[in-house]
Design a protein around this nucleic acid. Structure first.
Lengths: 338, 338
DNA sequence: ACCGAGTATGGTAACGGTTACATAGTAGCA
DNA sequence: TGCTACTATGTAACCGTTACCATACTCGGT
């Protein structure tokens, strides 16, 4: 209840007329303490407004009860659900979270790793494309357990929760073929254009069409120019697949502004199934890859694996195509907007 | 470079043939160290893969270099931009962030406060409606500096970055009146229905219309039922003001699905200007309250105020109405937009 | 030759907890 | 009665850094 200068365990011990060891036992809840003593101590704690020093505890026990979560950018709507689930799971298990926005910036990545190392972080969950590749050497000497989220499966060194991107793409491809599309554009950043990127590969295999890759620098920005570019190359009907929902929603907006019918002339499909995707007009067809699974399974792996770095486990979540209104049968006549 | 058992400052000192004090000087960068010695020590640090223990540093120096950010739910699209800006500003000033999702759960709020206290957090930024009211007593005895974000201005005890909700509402009201609306619904949660909630008040004053409050339990959920409810009470033309963009986008979706014209018959206005609001169809008229300002100014206040709890400062950000396509002149005949 | 200021380094007591070990009382039981 | 097991509490070493103090060397000025 008192103002807070620094109250230590010794102050509490004096006030209650016991030793620090006894106070410590009361706090931690193990070891023998009589009911009477416990009462006294608890009263003193309350009275003095004592709160144990995390730093001292952590130093003495050599445990941090903190785990780090590295993502690229919380503003990308893919992440909030992931972060939320990781935080929830972590807290249930007695850990708290340090959130790191790496922004794909290499200096920042390194700074964060140093920082987390110095915090003696028990674990490190990473959901940032390319991070594991860029920082592999550095990650090897990280003290805590490392778990990769949403990276490609089959990593030999780190435990991984992955999605089957190929399969997700394939579902999109099949769907587009089924509703009659013959031309497909795939909208993504430079990374997704890399050789054999499985999601794009899946779209191509599933549809039997050589989907054309369109590069955008960042999500949501120059989509206006991009819409123009697409329309110069090709007239509807065609389909556009966005690497994520924001890209898809944004390009959909641009195309509708130009008077095209979605669906009917153009189909648009996204990826991630963010909350808003079902609220836009038309509601977006997309692929749900269960962000919240990542959190739960990631923490599961972290605990399963424990301290033994040689143990590597893998889980895979299955993506699911959610068909809504932004993709559909093509209409025959070339009729535009009324 | 070595595997990580625990390398301490002593190991480095031995390896470099100096004392721990010297190593400490090299790390912190102040005090006298010769160039030759510095070199030696830095090499040893690298060689051994040494990383100073945050816990030990923090214990010894009695500083945490950590600040806590309490929000209600990162999944609410209002928050990512705020979190991102706070994190950015915090890191620039040498602090790192512990993110706390209180979920409006009182037990969780208390648990977080205890936790942050025990971490000897230097500061605490809170952007969670009602938190300061519920936990005021507890907050008073918090050790670090407390800054309230997006609370009503004029708090007597804590520094505050506020928005002028009344003015934001008023802008919405005036706009709706100007384009000819006579009926307005305000969609919000129980909290916003409270007596004299300034934003709602502003809408009423600005429009000169007694806007009707509609309660929804949480954003985005039972909006379908709500759309029905509104339509039973009233036929278009009317306007719907959402307490946030997600509510607005969602109700807009429902109303369009029922064949109404937006704009023309119905206008929909949101609040927050989240990134997606300009990408939906029609693009959403909304109020920008500069989430990223909150982060910057919040950290500014935190540093300005320093350790002296008696100092209380205030900043106010001015909201700005962004007129897009979801609100517009009413059409006389039932004909839609050209 | 001597002095003081500046430079370079080492020794060591904290910081605030936890925990192994020691001590001692009490109760059950042969 | 004496032995064992359990309960209850205290003592003190230790976790890894930092910062205060002491020591010692260098050098320019008188």
């Amino acid at each position: 209840m008192a103002r807070n200068t620094n109250i230590t365990i010794r102050d509490v011990a004096n006030h209650a007329g016991v030793s620090t060891a006894t106070v410590s036992r009361v706090i931690s809840g193990d070891g023998y303490v009589s009911d009477a003593t416990r009462d006294k101590v608890e009263k003193s704690i309350k009275k003095l407004g004592y709160s144990p020093s995390y730093a001292a505890q952590s130093l003495r026990t050599q445990k941090s009860t903190v785990i780090g979560l590295i993502i690229t950018d919380i503003k990308n709507p893919f992440y909030p659900e992931l972060v939320s689930s990781v935080e929830e799971e972590a807290r249930n298990r007695g850990y708290s979270l340090i959130l790191c926005n790496s922004q794909e910036d290499i200096d920042r990545e390194i700074a964060y790793l140093d920082y987390l190392d110095s915090h003696r972080t028990d674990g490190l969950l990473i959901c940032a494309p390319g991070f594991a590749t860029r920082q592999r050497k550095r990650l090897r000497q990280f003290r805590g357990t490392v778990v990769l989220l949403n990276e490609n499966a089959g990593d030999a060194e780190f435990s991984t929760v992955s999605t089957n991107n190929y399969q997700g793409g394939k579902q999109i491809g099949s769907h587009l073929k089924l509703i009659g599309h013959r031309k497909i554009f795939y909208l993504g950043t430079r990374r997704e254009s890399e050789d054999g990127y499985p999601r794009l590969q899946g779209v191509r295999t599933g549809s039997g069409i050589d989907a054309k890759f369109i590069e955008t620098d960042d999500f949501g920005d120059d989509l206006e120019g991009l819409a123009e570019a697409i329309l110069q190359v090709s007239k509807p009907p065609f389909a556009v697949v966005g690497h994520n929902d924001v890209m898809a929603i944004s390009i959909m907006h641009e195309l509708m502004n130009r008077g095209f019918k979605i669906p009917g002339e153009i189909s648009v499909i996204g990826y991630d199934d963010i909350e808003l995707s079902k609220m836009v007009n038309p509601a977006l067809t997309t692929v749900n890859q269960r962000q919240s699974q990542f959190g739960k399974w990631g923490m599961d792996l972290f605990e399963d694996v424990g301290n033994d770095k040689r143990v590597v486990k893998t889980r895979e979540v299955t993506p699911e195509l959610i068909i809504r209104d932004s993709s559909g049968e093509l209409v025959k006549s070339g009729k535009g907007k009324p």
